[in-house]
Computed example of a mutant assay.
Amino acid sequence: MLEYDYLENFTGDRRAIAVTLRNFASGLSGKLQNGDIVSVYVADYGDKKETLSPIELKYVEVLAVTLVN
């Protein structure tokens, strides 16, 4: 089993992104688990420093979670 075998099934119609949180509080939630469905918000975007939730980033499945101390 490869460490990143969950990425092997991507066929070009889906994307994978990595998200790093500075701390758990900045994630506004409890513990993420594989298979969770989340929405990703973009903070301080553009000249107006808006917080947005683009439609492409709603209902995003968590593929893997890594805890780094």
Rank of each mutant, 00 (worst) to 15 (best):
Y4W: 07
T20V: 09
L67G: 08
A16G: 01
Y59M: 13
R22G: 14
L57I: 07
I55D: 14
K48T: 14
L2R: 06
E3A: 10
E61G: 05
I55S: 11
R22T: 05
S29K: 13
E50C: 03
Y4S: 10
V42N: 04
L7R: 12
R14I: 02
R15S: 13
S26K: 01
I55N: 04
D13C: 03
A16N: 11
A16C: 14
V40G: 09
Q33G: 08
A25W: 03
V62T: 01
F24G: 01
T51S: 08
D36N: 15
A64H: 09
K49F: 14
L67E: 14
I17W: 02
L67W: 06
E56S: 13
G30E: 08
D36K: 01
G46V: 12
G30V: 03
T66G: 09
E8N: 10
S29H: 14
K48M: 13
E56P: 00
V40L: 15
M1D: 09
G46I: 13
S53Y: 02
E3R: 08
V19R: 01
V40D: 07
V19M: 10
L32Q: 00
A25D: 12
E56G: 15
N34S: 15
L57Y: 08
S53H: 04
V65H: 06
P54E: 08
L2V: 11
E50N: 09
K31F: 12
R14G: 09
F10Q: 06
I17K: 03
L63P: 02
Y41K: 10
Y6M: 15
K58E: 15
K31Y: 07
G35H: 00
R15C: 11
V38T: 02
S29W: 05
P54S: 06
V65F: 08
E56T: 12
